[in-house]
Every structure is written in structure tokens, then in C-alpha cells.
Design a protein around this nucleic acid. Structure first.
Length: 272
DNA sequence: TGAATTGTTCTACC
DNA sequence: TGGTAGAACAATTC
């Protein structure tokens, strides 16, 4: 389940290895054409042919390949991975898309669940219009968070998952950030105190930076590049810790559903 | 066999 | 109308 730190890890890795390469072609070995979300494979190829990758960046959970002309964006969704080599031949079964570069190397978009998508566009307006602030940008300050929470009459958990509010947070890191701040996932945003908001701001930043530092979370299905793995799993406090004691107070961690999403929290540290 | 899994988008409501 | 809530959707695993 790649979220911001996992996507950033992939971006860092790919930057070292494929920036400067020129795309020769893209194809879908399993004929899964739905992966090309806003175009056909033919259009995509016409657009990408001989196009050089000048930069790789991240916006929310989207990986952005800046090309000499236009942009190619990839969203990994649940199980998507970008690999330079396949471990075993049978892995080809799950490859949604395959890039070939002019130097003979390849990049595989392996995706067991097939929810991942590829988008190409001349500019990034469509992305900017639907994504909120970057939680690691300079514009995202403690004051910004408090001011915007004040304006929302929504439950905290669904609000933090809303990509148009803050871009990049997913189920894992939202549960961790709320636990860090001692905020119940069902609390209404406008009722959060300034002190709680400040703590939440600290939590979001430190959790994301920590996770990036150890290359993300190895839960279920994340790996980057050439089979590298993240180590943040060891640092999770509540996510996936149902029925285990809270690291702070030893109360048993509970799992509930909020907006149809599994939500882990400590009933003692995060009172409603 | 159907429940579980996720982020995004669509629809419906007040 | 705009903010919010909830359902739907993609596909696969166990």
C-alpha cells in the first residue's frame, strides 16, 4: 500500500537510475489496456517515442516523469511496483506495462491487483486541481493545519485521507499520526484544539520523514526498484496492531471501521 | 464463496 | 450550491 513515503522512495530510486534515458516504447504484455487511464496504448506510444526523461518527482501519491515534452504520471494504488528486473519469469503475468528505453534497458510496472494507472498529459493542471497541500512543503505549517481544520465539520480520519485536503496520506500514516497526537479518529475537525492540532502537525511531519528515512513500510506488498524493501513496519505503533498493547499506555489497541476503512486506535490515548 | 483490501470518483443528500 | 457522507469501482487472494 504505497503512500507518500513509499512513493518518495520509488522516486528517489528511479531518479538515480533512469533520469536521462529516452523512451523507445511502452506496451502491455498482458493486454491490460485499462492501465492507460486517459489514453490508448497507441496514443501513449506516439507521445512517448524518443521522449527523454528529464526529471522524476512526486505529487501526493503520484509519480511524475517530466519528459522533454509533457508528463507521464503513474499511480501505484494498492499493489503497484516499478521494477528494473523481474525476479522470476512468471512475474510477467502481473506486468501491467513495460517500458523500453533506447539503451536496451527496461522498466516493468508490476501490479497484482491491476488497480494502478498510467496517465500522460501536456501539463499537470489536472493533478494540481484535485490535490491538496504537500505535507512536507514549506507552505504546510502548524498554523495552516489549524486554520484549515477549523473550517471542516468532518471526522478526522476521512478528512486526513481526503487527498484534496492534504495530498499523500493513506490509511497507515493517518492512523499513526492520530495516535501520535492523541486524537480519536471520529473527532470532528473543527473541534480540535490548537494544542492537538500542533501535535498532529508534528506527528504528520515526523512520521513521514522517519518513514522516508527507512524507505517506507514493508506491509503486505511494497517493494521498490530492484527488490529493495522498506523498514518502517518495525516503527508502527497502532496500524495492524489490533489486540496488542498500546506502546504508550498498554491499553489494548482497537480496530473499528470509519468510512469503510479499517481504523486502528488506542481508546485510552485517543479519547473521543 | 464471499469477505477483505485500497485510493479515487461518482452520486445523493441537506 | 457547496460541503459532506456513503456507495461504487477496479481485481485478486484466501
Amino acid at each position: 500500500m504505497p503512500e507518500l513515503p513509499e512513493v518518495q522512495t520509488v522516486v528517489n530510486f528511479l531518479t538515480k537510475l533512469i533520469v536521462g534515458k529516452t523512451i523507445l516504447s511502452i506496451n502491455s504484455p498482458n493486454k491490460y489496456t485499462r492501465v492507460f487511464s486517459n489514453s490508448t496504448i497507441t496514443e501513449c506510444n506516439r507521445f512517448l517515442l524518443k521522449n527523454r526523461i528529464t526529471k522524476i518527482t512526486r505529487r501526493g501519491k503520484y509519480i511524475i516523469f517530466a519528459l522533454e515534452e509533457g508528463y507521464l504520471c503513474i499511480h501505484l494504488r494498492m499493489t503497484g511496483k516499478l521494477l528494473l528486473n523481474l525476479e522470476i519469469e512468471s512475474d510477467m503475468k502481473y506486468v501491467s506495462a513495460q517500458f523500453e528505453f533506447t539503451d536496451g534497458t527496461q522498466l516493468f510496472f508490476k501490479d497484482v491487483r491491476k488497480f494502478g494507472r498510467i496517465y500522460y498529459s501536456e501539463n499537470l493542471d489536472w493533478l494540481e486541481s484535485k490535490l491538496g497541500i504537500e505535507p512536507l512543503s514549506e507552505k504546510f505549517t502548524s498554523k495552516y493545519l489549524y486554520q484549515h481544520l477549523q473550517q471542516k465539520n468532518r471526522q478526522m480520519k476521512p478528512l486526513l485521507l481526503d487527498q484534496s485536503f492534504i495530498a499523500g496520506l493513506g490509511n497507515i500514516y493517518v492512523d499513526e499520526a492520530l495516535w501520535y497526537a492523541g486524537i480519536h479518529p471520529l473527532m470532528i475537525a473543527s473541534q480540535i484544539s490548537e494544542k492537538q492540532s500542533k501535535k498532529l502537525y508534528e506527528g504528520i511531519q515526523s512520521i513521514l520523514l522517519n518513514a522516508i528515512a527507512v524507505k517506507g513500510t514493508t506491509i503486505i506488498n511494497f517493494s521498490y526498484g530492484e527488490n529493495g524493501r522498506g523498514n518502517y513496519k518495525d516503527q508502527l505503533n497502532v496500524f495492524g496492531e489490533t489486540n496488542n498493547p498500546c506502546p504508550k499506555c498498554k491499553t489494548i489497541i482497537q480496530k473499528i471501521f470509519v468510512g469503510q476503512r479499517g481504523t486502528h486506535f488506542c481508546p485510552a490515548c485517543q479519547p473521543n
